[in-house]
Amino acid sequence: MTRVRFFAAAAELAGAPEAERDESTLGDLRRALAAENPGLGRILPRCAVLVDGARTDDDVPLPAGAVIDVLPPFAGG
Rank of each mutant, 00 (worst) to 15 (best):
C47R: 12
E36L: 03
G65I: 13
V51Q: 06
P72T: 06
R5I: 08
R3Y: 01
D22P: 00
E18N: 11
V49G: 07
M1G: 08
P63Y: 08
C47P: 11
A8M: 01
L40D: 04
L50H: 09
A14H: 04
R46Q: 12
F6A: 04
T56S: 15
G41V: 08
L71H: 10
A75H: 08
G76K: 07
R55V: 14
A10Q: 05
I43Y: 12
E20G: 07
S24Y: 03
A8H: 03
P17L: 09
L44M: 14
G15K: 10
L62R: 08
G27Q: 12
N37F: 00
R55A: 14
A19H: 01
T2D: 01
L71K: 12
P63F: 08
I43P: 00
L13F: 12
G39M: 02
D22H: 03
A14M: 05
F74R: 06
A19R: 13
A32Q: 08
D22Q: 05
A16K: 14
V70I: 14
G65R: 08
A8I: 01
A54P: 02
L50D: 08
T25S: 13
A35N: 04
R5P: 02
R3W: 02
G15Y: 04
F74D: 12
P38M: 11
A66K: 03
E18Y: 00
L29A: 08
V70T: 07
P73V: 05
R46V: 02
A14C: 05
D69V: 13
A8T: 02
E20A: 10
A66T: 07
T25N: 13
E23F: 00
A14K: 02
F7Q: 09
D57I: 00
F7A: 05
L71Y: 10
E23S: 09
V51Y: 00
A9M: 01
E20P: 00
D58L: 09
D52P: 00
R21H: 01
T25K: 09
A10M: 01
